[in-house]
Design a protein around this nucleic acid. Sequence first.
DNA 1: CAGACTTTGTAAACCCCCTTTCCTAACCCC
DNA 2: GGGGTTAGGAAAGGGGGTTTACAAAGTCTG
Lengths: 414, 414
Amino acid sequence: MKRTSRDIRTANRYEVLRQIIARSPTSRQELASATGLSLATVATLVGELLDLRMITEVGFEDSAGGRPRGLVAVNAAGGALIGVDIAETYVHVELFDLALNVLARAEEDIRPGESRPEQVIGHVATAVGSVVAQAGVEAARVLGVGVSVPGQVDRATGIAEYAPNWNWHDVPLLDLLSEHIAYPLHLDNPLRACAVAELWFGAARGHEDAVVVNLGTGVGAGLVLGGGLHRGVSNSAGEWGHTTLVLDGRLCHCGNHGCVETYVGAPGIMRNLRELDPRSPLLHPEDQTATVDALARGVAEGDPVAVKVVQDTARYLAAGIADLVNLLNPEVVVLSSWVAARLGGPLLDEVREAVARHALRRPLAATEIVLSPIPTDPVCLGAATFALEGALQSVGQRTAQRVVSGKGRTAPTA
Amino acid sequence: MKRTSRDIRTANRYEVLRQIIARSPTSRQELASATGLSLATVATLVGELLDLRMITEVGFEDSAGGRPRGLVAVNAAGGALIGVDIAETYVHVELFDLALNVLARAEEDIRPGESRPEQVIGHVATAVGSVVAQAGVEAARVLGVGVSVPGQVDRATGIAEYAPNWNWHDVPLLDLLSEHIAYPLHLDNPLRACAVAELWFGAARGHEDAVVVNLGTGVGAGLVLGGGLHRGVSNSAGEWGHTTLVLDGRLCHCGNHGCVETYVGAPGIMRNLRELDPRSPLLHPEDQTATVDALARGVAEGDPVAVKVVQDTARYLAAGIADLVNLLNPEVVVLSSWVAARLGGPLLDEVREAVARHALRRPLAATEIVLSPIPTDPVCLGAATFALEGALQSVGQRTAQRVVSGKGRTAPTA
DNA sequence: CAGACTTTGTAAACCCCCTTTCCTAACCCC
DNA sequence: GGGGTTAGGAAAGGGGGTTTACAAAGTCTG
């Protein structure tokens, strides 16, 4: 990919807005020192964002002998972003204001046989319509919709190349969605959504290199390298869940043996429990969430089986994370997604300790392991962030398109 | 790290020189279409390189009805680069002309026990002096010396933070070397040297994302991500050799169990052989090179034990490579270093096949696995490339330093 | 309460980088 | 030796960032 000076501008625009959202309200001076940009550049970018009505001037700082600093803050009401989290059994949609507060939520269940794209898209369209209605925002103020769909996605064409849970192959999801949804659409997968959410609003903010480890039913790692998302050639980087942890280990649904996912994904954790005590009352064979919750409670109550399961899981997880630390040497490893949210506390200490045993000293010394600080659904937030990035990207674009006329030149349209 | 428009220039300068070296002689037009840059930019950069005498005009292309294209080629005699490969038992130094031909070689043995930094540096200084004398180049034409030293290196300070083979801790190697060597010095480790060599002259050339798998006594992976070397926060990314392949597997000298290195590094391969047939005549217990050579010959002759050992090794290697493919989604995986050079042919087919079984379909489809096409010592070449990059980096720098005068302004020095 | 001091933020000038456009140079063919 | 064609340099222009100058907007002090 060729890089141009425009990319620098886009990156700076992102960074300034990130800082404004994080520090809101804040001054141009603070932004300049936080971003390392000159005051003039910050002022220009702030001006752009003011013009877009994404931020507003909100008064002045008290001064101690000079002209008071003007303060800017996110203009929460200046637009709305929608994040769609499509999963195997549900579609979860959230509508955010520009301060990334959730204004409305909607959830649709996907019933077991509903695997056709049209059915799933129907749920998405319903839920999106619902959040817009609930929040009562005008359509024109919806800046975009980010859609996270499991599996491999081609961003350029908007095709879901492969979704394992429904066995989708090359579904032109973006085209299908755009028949029902009039807002700008952005497609990607949950791994990258979580990574972007952490990059903008979470523990990866301000870091050049970070790994966002996703612990859910599936497992993956969103890679932030060089300050931006690493996508790989075919936008399928981050499949850490299908990385071998135990050669010839547990059979994974990907066909391989010993994948990380089979040890630290929710079904893997259930299996860790079952292997320890097949009749444990903590085990809810058909309900991953309930089992994980039971484990969390068990650990809190000192149940030895629960403690042991978490220890075992932490040991597997730590071996996998140590691999990431050794290979990528990131500044921070973030544990995200619902399993981490529920089991994170007890897991974290064990993981830190075990990673310290596994990883090499030098990379380890530079890395910290933290839980995601994002309180809401990170996938929805990340998906909405894709929409936010999309809205910012088109700012710098030339608006005046050259008019190609059949014969002679036409006057440019106003 | 803040990126500026100058980085773009530097990257373009690299790319143009890379193309010139690869296609020498070539025309500005060809360079423009190869790099995607405009003719004007290419002409400017070519002009710069001509001024530096790194390239020369070498005539004209035949034309078919227009002004003939001027041809430029690397000015091999325009400078010399030195690559130093410090390893556990030897120091290998090569002197290159600007076409990256080897003009002189020198090798010094490091005897067991010679582990003090001054001893090692003495060998380096001797060897560097030797190649300069052999090649008969003037000191002024040596553009720089790249030094590869095993372990973790801080490039900014030039400190070898940790070298496992001699148990070095925080040795200020660059300072010590500069007492003996007057040329510009560049320090890094062999992993990254090989990666840069592939990026400039080998199989990774022109790719955005590549992994250079290093199979030697030690094992690692140089990561090319986003068109440049990925270093990680503390310049220690790429320690793939100390990534877990088999949980609780073979004990590694890093203190861990089941590291990739213990299965596919030269000692690991020897162990694979020993476990299969402890009395195999292929086994030279004290000589890794001889054993690997014997295995290569054995495979060529159809020796079933050799074939099996290579199969086993390939299987381990493939599992590890599949992990890299799934995690990073690179365009190309390059097998490099001396084990790959000797055993590469027979290994490659097995590896490709086994990776295809392990990796996910989508990332796999985008990845090819190849042997390094670099015929010489890739570490020396890569180290020399660091020196070349260094020489190119200082091109764009402002030369006129502001003179701070005590009183009034001094006339700028010519 | 007016002048002095301090700080903000905008505007202008400047540097770097790349591209487009124009024009001359250099060659082939007829 | 003109006409057609291609190469490559020079100039103009657009994007981006920084530095510098200066007006604006405060506090402080005599």
